[in-house]
Nucleic acid binder design. Structure first.
Lengths: 145, 145
DNA sequence: CAATAATTTTTTGAGAGTCAAAGTATAAGC
DNA sequence: GCTTATACTTTGACTCTCAAAAAATTATTG
């Protein structure tokens, strides 16, 4: 099998399986009541200042109506807090509760370990090659956008 | 921004967007009536001998019931043909129609161009580095499985 | 060889995720 | 103050998914 086929296999299989594997890795005993989708919403809300529904919906590329339904569940489960903006009472500001922040950290840990897993045993020079290849991939995808 | 952050950004953003971008790239004017999911089923059926429902469902890691529903649509839309096996009349053999084969080629083209996009401007030595990094990533994910 | 068990697929019922469009509440502009 | 715009929620419909029940066929076995 030549390099072309190896890369092709790795790309296609990784992409097809990545979501499932990530879900299994992230949705542990401690966070059994949330889905992979919920975790991505938690990651998008983040641990900074509260964000509006529109802001988070845009960053996730879903409609605000879709986000409303997901946030209903996350509020019910105690991961997210809803609050009306004082400055503009049309705006709903969402933020993570303590439980939400804990899930956020769990997700971040996974990402950090993932990057460490990729970079292990690679020299600085080799890492630059990897950045180049991934940038190529990103550009390829964006050229189709 | 150091290499760690660059890799982290590329990995996380690519994974989050890859499915959407692939969908936009593959579901063109010519193949407007199918979803990304449909295309993965078409890829799994392939252009070889007809395959049973169970075989295809296993290769996609979905239940046979789920596949039945998807195949109903693909047959209705003219991409897939259903036929009872002569040898064992319980078995349903599915294969691609001409239209299905055309969609399959379109999908294959995309994958080929994707790999070319990644490998362009990389030397053989650099490609080996990429293989190493992607193998690390694969192993990282599988260690969580 | 007839009754029972196993296999393959389809159907059904339910839940999550999604969008578009309609509805509600508040803010901004004239 | 009316009208228009904005932010969000609700509703209805669709896809994807699974588990479990049902249907058809094949295999086993007593």
């Amino acid at each position: 099998m030549d390099s072309y086929d190896t890369i092709s296999d790795l790309l296609v299989n990784l992409f097809n399986e990545i979501m499932d594997i990530e879900e299994k890795a992230i949705i542990t005993e401690e966070f059994q009541d949330i889905t992979n989708n919920d975790m991505h919403i938690i990651a998008a809300i983040g641990i900074g200042l509260p964000l509006s529904m529109t802001t988070v919906a845009n960053s996730l590329s879903v409609t605000v109506g879709t986000l409303t339904i997901a946030i209903n569940n996350l509020v019910k489960k105690g991961y997210v807090a809803r609050a009306r903006s004082q400055a503009d009472r049309r705006v709903v500001l969402i933020s993570l509760t303590e439980k939400g922040r804990s899930a956020y950290s769990h997700h971040e840990d996974f990402h950090r370990k993932m990057v460490e897993g990729v970079l292990k045993e690679l020299s600085d020079e080799q890492i630059q090659v990897l950045v180049k290849a991934m940038t190529n991939l990103k550009e390829f995808f964006y050229s189709y956008k």
